[in-house]
Design a protein around this nucleic acid. Structure first.
Lengths: 343, 343
DNA sequence: ATAGTTCGTTTAAACGTTTAAGTTCTCTTC
DNA sequence: GAAGAGAACTTAAACGTTTAAACGAACTAT
């Protein structure tokens, strides 16, 4: 298609291909006169070095692999757009690009990692949604192949990651509810197996302890991350006798927070004044809900940016400056938790 | 990293590299004995052909480029996740992958297309959100480089596309509202410049004509695709005198439909019974709104799948079977438009 | 005058495949 | 018994770069 090669330029400028390469990459001293001729010829022919050939010779691909599980229809992925954009943008600044590929299970994902490493299809991987004992992390560590992760895993495994401090985020959110006058605060959490869930729940526990408030065991309900489960859990919470019934709920995701809001609304309970709710993620829709949903916003762009630059450092054999980074989410207070509360 | 080349396998099997290649690609007759030896050696050494080398020799990349504009914080992109997954999955079936790259303006996008074509970084492009006189389409047609588009453009330009039939979709949605008993139906539309907006609006017009219902010019309000604009427009609609005030609104996107719902709710107007609303996109959040939002669901997975296979056909010099495909959206009726209406 | 340096350039190998063309051997066929 | 065909394999070129090594010329230092 493009067709014009370095040989064409060399011929046109009356020099060898080596000289053309030296001029174009500025990698050796070349006389002014020759440089001029080469540049002129390259310009005139519209020459651009073929990337595949260059990659072969450098034995690299300048491609970073990223995959994610397609979001089930009853959930949403509020960060994919931003995240992909952030890593792609940071990568592009170093002439790297993102290769996306679909996977439907962890097992398949691992098989594809192996294959891609062997066939030299990418120079490194970006993982997201890591968990304890994550087999992907384990595999890539074994293969000794460059990768970075959005999320942590086993503390004894050394690998570069960036994560958002869910503990501190939920701590701040809970503290905020306490300041509004709430005393009975519930937490809709995730199954034990989720490391992210553990972190976030811990923030709730600490804030309650910090405020000297007791936690009724019934206030912590663990479910999958769905609207439906959160809706049900909220019913259970609202069925508690008045003196044990929570006046505020911290949900570990916006999706669940919406479940809380709907369950309350369907019972005629005014969200915001009678029941405060805080979510996590600050999904784009949060601000448009009625009342608008308070939520913890993750610095997704920074996460992506840091991950990409860390990975590129790694690929090029440089130790990344900081290789395990915890970023702080920020609490966005909106109507769902904006009212002072009195018993 | 991987390190084991075809030469290693050849040496181990005691044959030439050509023979190894023939065996592994099944591209020539080879004796059973040799085939066995080669396969055994390849297996034992864990050999996988290097993709960059293969690509160079075939002068292809097996990469398809896709870019999209990052969604502004006050909007959402309900289809990116699904769309990317669908094209990546279809591409993977033919051993192609998706290369994503970020762009912030159309001008930049075009510059990058040019560069990528010249450097041979991808074999083709997927465009989305095309419009009339779209300069990207024009550029790629000029370059005579393979591409396909999610969306149409000028009818006199020939290129392969897949689009969702907005006209028919909105026609069906409007018809549905008529069947519920609505007579005064408004439409929140987009600026004239939007081709997709034109198509969808046309569906509204046709359905009204079809039902013999007059359209009050004040019922069509054109704004940008934002919650805020839709909110304002709805105020205007609801300020109309009772005999001209619409009892139903068709919004060209879910984002705008949410604006409608909120404006109504803030005035104490019951969405669903007093004011029916239908959106477009069936964003994941639609089902969780109160009331749940009726919407037109686009067959995104099929769009992506068709685009990818069409593009791969094109790249390989095959004429795609059908190269201009219009798919039908399906109306998902929920609470926001489920009630029969009487004046 | 000679050896050593520096500068500017070319030659040729290398990256790891695929594949057209060539070689060798065996088997037919007349 | 020679010519031809076919099978099984090898040789070597090609894809388009980069870059180490070689080379020659012009200078510098002894």
């Amino acid at each position: 298609m493009a067709g014009v090669t370095i040989r064409d330029v060399a011929k046109a400028a009356g020099v060898s291909t080596a000289t053309v390469s030296y001029v174009l990459n500025n990698s050796r001293q070349v006389s002014e006169e020759t440089r001029r001729r080469v540049l002129e010829a390259a310009q005139r022919l519209g020459y651009r070095a073929n990337i595949t050939a260059r990659n072969l010779q450098a034995s690299e691909t300048r491609l970073l692999g990223y995959t994610w599980r397609p979001t089930p229809p009853d959930q949403f992925n509020p960060i994919l757009d931003q995240f992909l954009n952030a890593i792609a943008q940071a990568a592009a600044r170093h002439a790297y690009h993102i290769l996306t590929f679909p996977t439907t299970s962890i097992a398949e994902e691992i098989a594809i990692y192996r294959e891609m490493v062997l066939t030299g299809q990418v120079d490194g991987f970006v993982l997201s949604n890591t968990n304890l004992d994550d087999p992907r992390v384990q595999t890539l560590l074994e293969l000794d192949f460059p990768f970075v992760a959005f999320g942590r895993s086993n503390p004894e495994w050394y690998f570069p990651w960036v994560d958002v401090d869910g503990t501190h985020g939920v701590f701040v959110a809970t503290q905020h509810l306490v300041q509004q006058g709430h005393r009975r605060i519930a937490c809709l959490a995730w199954p034990h197996a989720s490391l992210t869930g553990q972190h976030r729940l811990e923030g709730y526990r600490r804030a309650m302890a910090d405020a000297g408030l007791p936690i009724d065991p019934d206030w912590i309900i663990r479910t999958e991350n769905t609207h439906e489960d959160a809706y049900q859990a909220t019913q259970t919470l609202l069925d508690l006798p008045a003196w044990r019934r929570p006046s505020a709920v911290v949900a570990l995701s916006d999706l669940m927070a919406i479940g809380v809001m709907n369950a309350a609304a369907d019972r005629g309970i005014a969200v915001g004044s009678e029941l405060a709710v805080v979510g996590f993620d600050d999904a784009p829709v949060a601000r448009f809900l009625r009342p608008p949903l308070s939520s913890l916003r993750q610095p997704i762009a920074e996460v992506g940016e840091r991950l990409a630059t860390m990975l590129i450092d790694l690929v090029n054999g440089r130790r990344p400056g900081q290789s395990q980074v915890l970023l702080q989410p920020s609490l966005i207070v909106r109507g769902s938790s904006a009212f002072p509360y009195h018993d």
